[in-house]
Amino acid sequence: MFEARLVNSSTFRKVLDAIKDLLNEASFDCSENGIQLQAMDSSHVSLVSLNLKSDGFDKFRCDRNLTMGMNLTSLGKVFKCSGADDTVTMKAQDYADTVTFMFESKKQDKISDYEMKLMNLDQEHLGIPDTEFSCIIKMPSIEFARIIRDLSQFGESIVISCTKEGVKFSAQGDIGTGNVKLAQTHNFDKEEESVTIDLQEPVALTFACQYLNSFTKATPLSNQVKLSMCENVPLVVEYQIPELGHLRFYLAPKIEE
């Protein structure tokens, strides 16, 4: 028996919104530790890694490890039926081929449930090596989304370069070039507005705008985003989901020929 209850169903809806551009279907691995998802997009350029801790749920029970393959478009349809303030309870029997989502309104005056067919997905699990990153940038997630959106107008790629002076985002294309530089700013009153850089050595890497833009769909999940970079290693873009876990995106760099 698997049962997970989340008072803020909108958090799960935000997670779905953040990954549906990249993935058509994915397996949710449920264990006593929580719910994990790991999947690459169809072109094998980016990877989504979601971790929702069991103790972040309002109720969590998982008697037996369970992998639930889901079509994310269908799952999106189910969550479209939920109210913004609804509580969601997900339930599945052991070895089941369906999962049930029950939505309850705040006042408990409306209860709806939707049963969705599960899929058998043959997804391989990847081992992600521990990396000593050259730099780790933490910045407001809204600012990151804005910069990526702005610079995407200029070209298909964005160079992210980080030095002790700050972080620079650059793009160039037919109409010209764009550069955005951010200095470290520590706002002790408003931690979420700070830009902090933990630098071991300067690094500059090039990434495709299309993927960076997709990642920023996770902005509503978190005030801050963490970018971890190292030469010849995928970029890690991490959004912490308060009290529940994290959503990470890995992106292979573009390499100069």
Binding site: E124, L126, V233, Y250, A252, E256
Partner: peptide
């Protein structure tokens, strides 16, 4: 010109 790398080379299949 630059080419898009794929993730397969970075991660190991478990």
């Amino acid at each position: 010109t630059s080419t898009q790398a794929r993730l397969d080379g970075f991660f190991t299949v478990l």
